[in-house]
Amino acid sequence: MTDELGVEPIAATAGLDVAHRWLGNTVWPLLGQDELARLHRSPLGRTEEEWRAALIPALTDLYRRAYPYAEAYETASSAASGFAVKHGYSEAEAKAYGESYAAMNTDANQRVHAEANARAVASLAAKAFTAGDVDAYAQTRPGAMVRACIAVAGPEARDRLATGLRDALSP
């Protein structure tokens, strides 16, 4: 029997079957990452490199989209504009300076945040998935990923994630 993506579910690595079902049936489909969802639905025999190669781009996208860009931009712009005014810039010049600074600063922070978190989590998850190690998976801080998913998909995603977890717990 195949799922809605045409993948036949296979028993997951012992110990992480619930995590694989939840990630494969709920989390990654919610985020539009169907290829990664397929990997979770057929996790046996995957290498660390294969997991890492699939996880890094998906996690980078998740963390980039979850970054509180508008809030960070406003904070940086306001601080830089205030700095410029204190140093003799006109209001218009200070505003332009603040916006320029905020764009460069926030873009860089968002990129670094996404890449660093994705690489760290992907490395830990790849090891956990390959070994079927529940304790290693806990090191990926799944709760942080849930918060990122909600930031990206909206508050209504909370119910979908919870329902998906409940379904994964009772196959």
Rank of each mutant, 00 (worst) to 15 (best):
T13L: 03
D3F: 01
H87N: 06
D107F: 15
Q110N: 05
W51F: 05
L39W: 13
Q110I: 09
A19R: 01
I10L: 08
H113E: 02
Y89R: 01
E99I: 04
D133W: 09
A76F: 12
T2S: 05
T47M: 03
L44C: 12
Y63Q: 00
R147D: 15
W22I: 01
G6Q: 10
P171C: 07
L169V: 00
L36E: 15
R41F: 06
T140M: 14
L39D: 12
G132N: 09
F129C: 11
G6E: 11
D107H: 14
D159V: 02
T2E: 11
Q110S: 04
A58W: 15
L44E: 13
E156R: 06
L55P: 03
T163M: 11
L16F: 07
N105L: 13
T2V: 03
A144V: 11
A114Y: 14
Y137F: 15
A53I: 12
A108T: 14
Y97A: 10
L16R: 00
L59V: 06
T75I: 05
D167P: 13
I56T: 10
Y137D: 06
L5D: 15
L161Q: 11
G32M: 11
L165Y: 07
A126M: 12
H40K: 06
A79S: 09
P171Y: 10
M104Y: 13
A120Q: 15
N105V: 14
L169R: 13
R119K: 15
T75H: 10
S42Y: 00
S100V: 00
E4T: 05
T2Q: 07
P9G: 02
T47Y: 09
